[in-house]
Amino acid sequence: MGGIKNVRQILESMCDLFAECAIECVDAMFGKESELKMPWQVVEQLQAQFDRLLTMGSGNEEFSALTCAGIQYDSLDAFVEEENISTEYAADILGEFVNNYCGLLSSKDVFKDNFGQHIQAVPILYSDGQSFLPFIWGVQGYIYIGDHWMYIGYTIRDNITRSNNKF
């Protein structure tokens, strides 16, 4: 960790790790096998148009990050096998998922070597609304259980150089 880095290049080298952690997290939390139907990729702005979108900030002195989990109304049932999940419970499940996902990422040496240990902030759930996330390079992708999917995005920038800002 330390020094000026091209965060976008680091994220590109870690795309598979972000995807693997998502699959590991679904298996650990819900006891279900999920799959990728397409590779995860680095994008200049994370997506934000979902029925439910949970975001959680994290970071340390050097980096600020944002983790997002997005899902459609009927998809969460496939992950947790419960019906009629309330908005409050959906927020709880997505918040716990993001919390655990960030914990898993932080346990990987390659993540720690590049970004250090992060402290997590309070998660926020957006429901039924349109959200706009900042133009900062990030990794995003989908994991599937059958035809149901969950979106996960992770964006991070260097606090000092802000070298990962698109603008």
Binding site: C102, G103, L104, S107, K112, Q117, H118, I119, Q120
Partner: peptide, 10 residues
């Protein structure tokens, strides 16, 4: 007391 955490190196 057993503590529970997602941040194992924290």
């Amino acid at each position: 007391v057993i503590v529970v955490t997602a941040m194992r190196d924290s």
